[in-house]
Structure formats: C-alpha cells, structure tokens
Design a protein around this nucleic acid. Structure first.
Lengths: 194, 194
DNA sequence: GTCCACATGTAACTGGTTACATGATTGG
DNA sequence: CCAATCATGTAACCAGTTACATGTGGAC
C-alpha cells in the first residue's frame, strides 16, 4: 500500500494531472517507486472517492480533457500518519542474483554478456544521478527539505555505485572461471532435450 | 516469472518436498527471492503439470503425506534457457526512500526511530551473512560452483553494508535537522484534521 | 478533413499476500 | 484420546502489468 502515498507526496510537491504525474514517475519519484499511467489513474480515482484529493476547481471533467488534482487535509494527514508508522523492510527480490545462483547448477553460458549489459545500464544511471546531484544540490544550500531529498539521492548514487562495483568484480571472476563451468554438472541421470 | 526458476534451482541443488522448500526459502535462496508455502505448492503443481518436475517414485500422493520432487530434463532445459536469456533490471521499489521523500513535505516526525530500527535489522543481517561467509567459504577452496555462490553472497554482504552506512549517515543528518523540519510546510491553504 | 500527439480511461491477466481448511503422525 | 506439529492444500483478495479503447485539439 504505497502507491497512493507516492501519489500524495507528488501532488503535495506540485498539483498535477494524471499524465503529468505519469511523467514525473518516469524520473525523480519513479527512481524508487515506478508506476504506469493505468495504475495512476486508477489510484487517483480511488483517492478522490475517499476524499484525500480533489480536482482543481475550474477544470471540466470530460474524457479527453485535462484534470488536475490537489491534496486535501485528509490526504495530508494520511500521508503524515503513514510516513511516521513503523514498517518492516520487505525482503528484496533480485532476478540477477537468482540467475547467478541458477548458473551455479546449469552453467554460466550466456550470463556474462548480460552482466556486461547490466554494468553499462548501472553506470549510465549512476552518471544521471551524479548529474542531478551537481545540478540540484550545490555544496552550500541546505534547507531541511533539500537535505532530505539529497539524502534520498545519495541512496540512489550509493546503490548504483554498489552495483557497478559488484558487477565489475563478478565479471573479473567470470573471466577466471574454467571452461567446464560454462555448462557443468550435466546431471548424470537423464538425457538432454525437452 | 521467476518463482518457478527459483524452485527449479532449489530442486536441482537438492530434491525436496514443499515444506522443505519453504524452509529453504526462509534462508539461502530466500535472501534474494522469498516465497510463502502457498506460492510454492501452487507453483509445484504447475511445474509438475507441465512436465518440468515429478514426484520422487515410492512416495504416496495423499493429503497430509510428504511428497518430494525432482527436476526432469525439460525443467533443467527451461532453467538453462531462462538463465542465459537477457533480462532488463527492473526498477527497484523502496518504501523507506519513499517515506523519506514524503517526510520532506509532511515532516520527519516518527521517522527517525524507524531508521534506527532498520539500521539494527540491517546490521543483524550483515552479521548473519558474514557468519555464513566464514562458515561456507573458507579462503582457499574454489570449485566453480562455490565461486558463483560466493559471488551471490558477496552481493548480499555489500548491499547490507551499503544500507548500514547510508542509514548511519541519514541518522547523523537527522540529528542536525532544525526543529521546524519535524512538522514543516504546514500547507497555508487549509485546516488541520481529516 | 486527416493524422498525430495529448489525455483519460477499461478489461483481462498474473503474481504475491492473507486467511483459512484438512489430514497424518507423534508425544503425553 | 487429545493436543501439537508436520504437511499439503483452497479461496479470496490486492497490486502491478499488458493490451486496448475513446475522446480532444492542433498541424498540415
């Protein structure tokens, strides 16, 4: 139950229409909470129904027509409640690590190329974050709000740094792997194909 | 579509029953791909129906009765295919970062205590991983399989290290936050309660 | 007038979560 | 025989994903 809270946060930062929100979820907030426009429209309808947000007055609610929302006191209160409430970190799921573990039993064939591709993607993401840091958080300004947002960005930077380092290390290990490891443990008991 | 592959990997490492798998998903594999027993039973039934696994012979398929599975060639082939196939990293979702961003608009009240709690949890997890590393990966042995599994564990260790460091840093920043930041930007326009 | 981009929405499906149901085995 | 534990399973629900439908307004 976090999407509604992500939307409330975004709307408090700046009242927006569904499509504008969608665009903002492609960057900034979307860096750690992505959402498609379908999810967003569905959730906006729900939030409006329960009185957490409302459409800005002077907007016509017609089909192909832009409709902007703002947060109501009830919505702000709910967001504050949720932010303060203790929540357990939920176990991360990581497909790449799963594939590596699978590779330990069925062989590493094909994996290396994808590791290389992931490394590039993470390097690109890291560069993007660092650019944002330089642009939005110059060394001195430090309003409390900026401090907090900078902290969030720092997490993104450090995470991407971790991935690039780990992937680099992994590729080095792969290079040293003996050839048998590419398709090992050919299960003694049974044949080959499906 | 990764749960079936996680299960195939686990079963190749060692044929097991549903409950045994559930227990293994509470550690090792579960560190980066968690699953409940309901999910596992559902998936085992599907995998058996499609011919990827089978119940070990000499097991009676009755209700309160243990039923162990092993992987068939088709299942192994599918796992190898999946492991080698290129897959995009999917955007991470992180509730804590979302809450921090929300706190920048509705105030940090209550968050600090939870950061501290998370720090402790991550420190504990880190300690657990390091214990496993010492126990299972002594400095010298390096069969290819162990190398790969060690690599996976390394990722876990480095990730937990990142979190403990970041959380420590975040708490330091929190300590320096001015009091207004605890409940700031009290939205000029409207009243208080729901 | 037609096409395209903008904008909002519906429907069907998949995977994960929560709550509950049922049977077998074992220790007291 | 009763309770606890092991073990397998059902059902309902919720969130996220994918594919598609519909309407508006401006450029040409």
């Amino acid at each position: 139950m976090s999407l509604p809270h992500a939307i409330l946060t975004a709307l408090l930062e700046k009242p927006s229409s569904g499509l504008e929100l969608t665009r903002r979820f492609d960057k900034s907030i979307g860096y750690f909470w992505s959402a498609t426009h379908q999810q967003i429209y569905r959730e906006l309808a729900k939030l409006e129904a329960e009185g957490s947000i409302r459409t800005l007055p002077a907007e016509q609610p017609a089909r192909g027509q832009k409709k902007s929302y703002e947060v109501l006191p009830a919505g702000r209160a709910e967001l504050a409640r949720w932010t303060a409430a203790s929540q357990d970190p939920k176990p991360q799921r990581d497909i790449l690590l799963l594939r590596l573990r699978a590779a330990a039993v069925v062989g590493t064939a094909g994996l290396e190329a994808d590791l290389r591709r992931h490394l590039e993607l993470h390097q690109r993401q890291l560069a993007e974050y660092e650019e944002i840091e330089q642009r939005d958080f110059p060394p001195d300004r430090d309003a409390p709000q900026d401090r907090l947002r900078h902290l969030v960005l720092r997490a993104g930077i450090d995470l991407e740094t971790f991935w690039t380092q780990w992937l680099t290390h992994a590729l080095k290990e792969f290079a040293e792997l003996p050839d048998e490891a590419r398709k090992p443990v050919p299960d003694p008991a049974n044949g080959t194909s499906a």
